[in-house]
């Protein structure tokens, strides 16, 4: 492959824009994982559901893709808290393997429900934004990806603001730091968990609506994004909000620069390589301090 400045510039631009979406998807996982110490292995499948909702609103209902946020975010919030209440809350004190297997089971159910009822077809929504491109020299900036990046940053900021400045956010952070102490000062930890799970899921609704103009939907789409989210959360440091955002950009850049340098799909190996390296040497993430 001939290496050129344009190619590299293109990879950097695409990587940063995609990295923004990676970051938003991962922030939701980080919130849930950090607060409840439960890895939601169905995180990618939640995103998949949101993408289907957005897709059908756009393709069948003629909605503007960005307006679908009004449906996808509340819908995912609701789906999140229902699934949490019914399946995850009863096992919140069980051994980790049971929690892992429960969410793995959830991901199998959601993925294969989609496969059974929506078929394995890969769906692409054609919107007014899909072909909106800008040119910076020889580099193409896809309008839909730019909007997704800005939207992700905005959504992540709102989530950050909620966590830092509101009582709800303070309660969530307190519960994540010390469950018992939080209970002692009168925080209802149970409803705090519910809320955290709902918020973490709702951020996926936003991400899905932002992605629909440029990304395909299929029953297995969650697999890839789920894995990316684990990578980003670990890299950024569990529960480290800013770290997660930066890690999203790093992984976005790794994927796109890797794809422009390495043949085939080997860039993915690079991503997993970073993941394994970080898990082994710095499980607290590249920015984190000490981890409990």
């Amino acid at each position: 492959m001939v290496f050129s400045f344009e190619l590299f510039g293109q990879a950097v631009v695409t990587g940063i824009l995609i990295g923004g979406i990676f970051a938003l998807i991962s922030v939701g996982l980080s919130l849930i994982w950090g607060v409840m110490r439960i890895i939601n292995f169905a995180h990618g499948e939640f995103l998949m559901i949101a993408m289907y909702i957005a897709y059908f609103l756009v393709a069948k209902g003629g909605w503007d893709p960005y307006l679908t946020i009004l449906i996808t975010a509340p819908a995912l919030f609701l789906i999140g808290i229902i699934i949490f209440q019914v399946t995850i809350r009863p096992i919140i004190k069980d051994p980790p393997i049971n929690q892992i297997m429960l969410t793995v089971g959830l991901s199998l159910i959601l993925q294969n429900l989609a496969l059974v009822f929506l078929k394995a077809d890969v769906l692409t929504a054609n919107t007014a934004y899909t072909r909106m491109n800008f040119y910076l020299g020889g580099v193409v900036v896809r309008g839909s990806q730019l909007i997704a990046f800005v939207g992700s940053a905005l959504a992540a900021f709102i989530l950050y603001w909620i966590l830092q400045k509101t009582d709800i956010g303070r309660a969530i952070r307190a519960a994540s730091q010390n469950r018992d102490a939080a209970t002692l000062v009168g925080i209802n930890v149970r409803s705090t968990y519910l809320l955290a799970f709902g918020l973490g899921s709702a951020s996926l609704g936003v991400a899905a609506s932002l992605m629909i103009p440029f990304y395909y939907t299929s029953p297995t789409v969650g697999l890839f994004f789920g894995l990316i989210a684990y990578v980003v959360v670990v890299l950024g440091g569990l529960g480290n909000f800013i770290g997660t955002l930066v890690a999203g950009l790093i992984i976005g850049l790794t994927e796109s620069i890797g794809a422009s340098l390495l043949p085939g799909s080997l860039a993915r190996v690079l991503t997993f390589g970073i993941f394994i390296f970080v898990l082994l040497l710095r499980p607290q993430g590249i920015f984190g301090g000490k981890q409990k």
Binding site: T87, I91, D94, N98, Q99, M101, L102, V104, G105, L106, S107, L108, I109, Q111, N112, L113, L115, V116, P219
Partner: peptide, 15 residues
């Protein structure tokens, strides 16, 4: 996918 759907359901119920 029906078979994996069954496995997933059994897994969740088991847990």
């Amino acid at each position: 996918g029906a078979q994996i759907l069954l496995y997933g359901t059994v897994l969740v119920l088991t847990m």
